[in-house]
Design a protein around this nucleic acid. Structure first.
Lengths: 205, 205, 205, 205
DNA sequence: ACACTCGGGACCTCCCGTTGTT
DNA sequence: AACAACGGGAGGTCCCGAGTGT
């Protein structure tokens, strides 16, 4: 019955959801385990402490998610703007209904721990940086190809886009409303459209 | 020397800062009191429970702050765009250095409690609504006066602006960096400029 | 029903016995409280931590005991040798049957914590020093009065006497036998007698 | 490369040191193993329980040590007093610097467990008895040879000597000071000298 | 109006020993 | 013979809130 490595994965997955829903500090170890059928002995074997579990969740669950949802699609898209739009529209799909009103995992943790846990914060900011770099690189490629406005700074714009995205994800979470989420996403789409070479200002907001 | 209501006020003020820094759930009652020189007897005389204190902090500290910082200046500004810009630039001043990297109190609480405490959430969303209505009203006034683009929906735009503002406030908090905050605010300013009647697209991001 | 200060005293007293019987680290907080009728809230109110309780037990229970049992009688005795003998013989009385086979509280704690908890050790060694100084002072007085051998160093002798006493207390504890205790005490008495001015060697052991 | 019994020996040795430093109850099984490169599977293959390991440490490590340090030298010494003095002086050598301020292993365990674990206590007291018998036998031999005072009871004296030795070992441990240890050992040496036939009282302490 | 005292529950951590496996 | 994984329970800490008294 022993599945080496499988238990660790189960704890990580359950830990992700408990932390996502309750926040890291309010996440209870017992609650994480209750869904897995494992006990504290198992958890303590794989992770020395709750904080270590939290870090592992960031590294082994959240970061891959960001890569799959944002970085990969962007890297493989011929045009960055189209790539961004496809990613953003993917968020509205029913695949992740909880995510639509639960906020972005990275941002949630950052908001909770930025002022309280420095190592945790650094780890999460590293995710943010990787994210921004990927978007900036895509924008630069678009500029080279002539599909993205030449007057904008790729990394400044990338940072602002992520910031804006987190703002609307957080606002949708605040309202707990998919409708609000979709409305804000539409504004976000219009903002992205203004990045296209030769865009007209009227579409901005 | 007993000043009726003075202790209540002191607790509210100290409670605000403790909650602002630690989050509501991590805020410890004893920590709130330690700065005031009072004890739990005093606190539980004025507030039946910690949650009640939290609500009072929202109503009596946070809401007035939002009014003073955003609503009043906007209401008294001749032009809404200029009014917004003045408010946004005011955020960079040294008056509130901690606020610049600590995030927006309303948004912080919302992120922490949206999924966990429904009454609290409603109370905070009410602040958000008041906020959005004030900006929407200002934009409408601007449209009537011809200084704001006529093609945008005042309330949709207002909601998006607030959302974007919270995104950048949260991002600045994540980085704990005034520099990042100011850079994002500059992008935000450019976004606001695109709302002006006859704005050019190049300034967008 | 609230007896301010009384609860603290009760916890100290119960804490002393639990620590005396189990050792400090094996002493369970619950066990300490079970005898007092109080709960953890009370303990945590009076002492911030188990270690703090331990220190308080040393300062407020053990140290006074040493003073009452050894220092006061010695200080008020006309002749130091007689004083020592009276104290030692007092140990055999039935007043403290548990003490006879449970070892000396100071020494027990010292043996447990000397290599593990430096602050604790220092605190206990301070008791030891006070103890030695009192005996040394008494011996010096005896030398001045001509009742104690002049060729011995008061503090070296005092230290050796305490050390020897702890050895026999520990040995009696090891055997859990009052008989062994009394037999060793008799040898100890003979050793003390050799300190008298003009003692004969035959009485030594 | 598997050496049968080699792992068992390594665990015993590591167990001895961990128990010596931390005490039996505070000794952690994992800590014992960490130095050996083995895991719990190995330990619980050789010993059914931690307590069994403790007993084995007493029987296979501590008891042989006592024999090597005390019993053998005494048995082979022509004169018991000289034999004792040679053993005692050997303690000051740099061979066992940790032992000088760490206390006697037998006595340490006895102090910790006398009141809590009866089988363990019996096992250790047996070591004490063997120890005392060896010294008593040596003293009796000395009396027969006329080098030891005839008026003392060999076993009472032997018991008192061991008790005194443990007292000073414990006191040195309490002070964690080799200096204190040596000073007390000097007093101990003088005490032993008084056992010689025709000794003068002045050397007593 | 406020201070001191105390109740009680929840959480993380820790650690011994067992089981399946190689 | 030994390892990795896991079970399970207990202990200290922490903290909200409820008493009582002034």
């Amino acid at each position: 019955m022993r599945q080496p490595g499988r238990s660790r994965r189960a704890i990580l997955e359950a830990g992700f959801w408990e932390i996502y829903r309750q926040g890291f500090r309010a996440a209870r170890v017992e609650a994480i385990l209750s869904g897995t059928g494992l006990t504290k002995g198992a958890l303590y074997h794989h992770f020395p402490t709750k904080t270590a579990l939290g870090s592992a969740v960031v590294d082994d669950v959240i970061r891959p998610r960001v890569r799959d949802w944002w970085l990969e699609p962007l890297a493989s898209a011929p045009d960055p703007i189209d790539g961004l739009l496809r990613v953003v529209r993917g968020l509205e799909r029913d695949d992740a209904p909880e995510m639509l009103v639960g906020g972005c995992p990275v941002f949630n943790l950052l908001q909770e721990l930025a002022g309280v846990d420095e190592p945790f914060r650094r780890n999460l900011v590293a995710v943010l940086d990787e994210w921004r770099d990927a978007i900036a690189a895509a924008l630069a490629r678009g500029q080279a190809a002539g599909t993205v406005r030449a007057d904008l700074h790729p990394d400044v714009t990338a940072a602002f886009l992520i910031s804006t995205y987190h703002g609307l994800a957080g606002t949708a979470k605040a309202h707990r409303s998919p409708t609000v989420a979709r409305r804000l996403l539409r504004s976000f789409v219009r903002l992205i459209e203004t990045l296209r070479a030769g865009a007209s200002p009227g579409a901005a907001v």
